Computed example of a mutant assay.
Amino acid sequence: MNVQTLLTFYLINSQAPFKDRNINEEIANSLIYVIEKYYEPRDSAFIICLSYERENTRDFYQDLSEILFRSYDNIKTQIVVKETQGLELKPIPTVKGKLTNFIFHMLVVDSVKSFLNIDLASKVKNYDTNEFYHIFLHNKDRFLDNDIRNILEYCWSNYMINVNVVIQTAAGDIIVYTYFPFNESHCNEVIPVEINRFQNGVMVNPDLFPEKLQNMHKCPVRVTPFHTPPFFSLNDRRNGTTDDEAINGFEGLLLRELSLLMNFTIEIILPPKKDERGHIFNNFSTGAIDMLEQTNQKENQQQAN
């Protein structure tokens, strides 16, 4: 990968009206750092999406995509320049000639609208992979706080957890934000947190994508069990017995061990007793399956709103 060519091009062609040349050099260096230090050692390919809303960033994005195609020789790269319409992310061949879906993504956007236009959720929802997203948000300071929160809320609502949003202030500081949905003060909530800064050519914290699920800080995980011994059974929960203590069977014991490992609290929600597990017939569901379907419908409605 010829990173110097990319850097030189960035300095010459950057069109951002509110950032000077020295600041633009730091932006380019920060993106190159992530590609070289994190993406290349872990995969043979990644995708970069450049999406814009403002006209004054269009030319830079288009030229950047061209130089990226010419510059990379160590890692396969799909580059997409996005204006208003939907885009299609297609698998590309790996070194061995097989098709692969992208694990590592780099996005360059100039607003929440340009980020949403990429429509990441619909492109990755059918892949059972743990993707990583490094998003550079190119906007003026007064919009940044709200934009960062909106982008991270979208990601969490679509189960995209390995996400960084990188911004550069008018003063030139390059700051990396993410979110931790579970901590000692909240559960299932998105609060942007500064986790890194790019200074003197490196990220201050070498851990670019911190772990977020190893410790869920006693936050609840809802379980809808049905009585199927010896796999899963539920003891009497009266007399102060907690949900954690009530479950039994070897699958139940496995769930209890998992709750200890990840530090979450088991919250049992019983399905209707007449049809515990449930059935699916002609798009109609019952029991625990119906409860899962209804939860998914509620989440989809919340995302649509």
Rank of each mutant, 00 (worst) to 15 (best):
P17G: 01
F18K: 07
K19S: 03
K19D: 06
R21I: 14
R21A: 12
R21M: 15
R21Q: 13
I23D: 10
E25F: 01
E25R: 10
E25A: 15
E26P: 05
E26I: 10
I27D: 05
I27H: 00
A28N: 07
N29W: 11
N29L: 15
S30Y: 05
S30P: 05
L31H: 09
I32P: 01
Y33K: 06
V34A: 11
E36N: 13
E36S: 14
Y38W: 15
Y38V: 15
Y39K: 08
E40T: 15
D43M: 07
S44N: 11
F46G: 04
F46Q: 02
I47H: 10
L50A: 12
L50Y: 03
S51G: 07
S51I: 13
Y52R: 09
E53L: 15
E53C: 11
E55G: 03
E55V: 04
N56T: 06
R58K: 10
R58G: 03
D59T: 08
F60N: 02
F60S: 04
Q62C: 13
Q62W: 11
L64S: 01
S65C: 15
I67A: 05
I67N: 07
L68Y: 11
L68F: 08
S71C: 02
S71G: 06
S71N: 03
Y72V: 11
D73M: 06
D73N: 03
I75E: 07
K76V: 10
I79F: 02
V80E: 13
V81Y: 05
V81M: 07
K82M: 06
E83C: 05
Q85N: 12
Q85T: 04
E88L: 14
L89E: 07
L89H: 04
K90L: 08
I92N: 02
P93R: 13
T94F: 09
V95F: 15
K96L: 10
G97H: 00
G97D: 02
L99W: 02
N101D: 13
F102C: 00
F104P: 01
H105R: 11
M106I: 04
L107G: 03
V108Y: 09
V109P: 01
V109Y: 04
D110G: 01
S111I: 06
V112L: 14
K113Y: 03
F115I: 08
L116I: 12
L116S: 09
N117G: 15
I118A: 09
D119P: 03
A121F: 11
S122P: 00
S122K: 12
S122E: 12
S122T: 09
K123V: 11
V124L: 03
K125V: 09
N126K: 14
Y127Q: 11
D128T: 14
D128S: 05
N130R: 04
E131R: 11
E131Q: 13
F132T: 00
H134A: 10
H134N: 13
L137D: 02
L137R: 04
N139F: 04
N139G: 05
D141N: 12
R142L: 08
D145W: 04
D147M: 00
R149K: 15
N150K: 12
N150S: 01
L152F: 04
L152D: 00
E153I: 13
E153V: 13
Y154I: 08
Y154H: 08
N158A: 06
Y159R: 00
Y159I: 07
M160R: 00
M160N: 03
I161W: 03
N162V: 08
N162F: 00
V163R: 00
V163A: 02
N164E: 00
N164T: 00
N164V: 01
V165P: 01
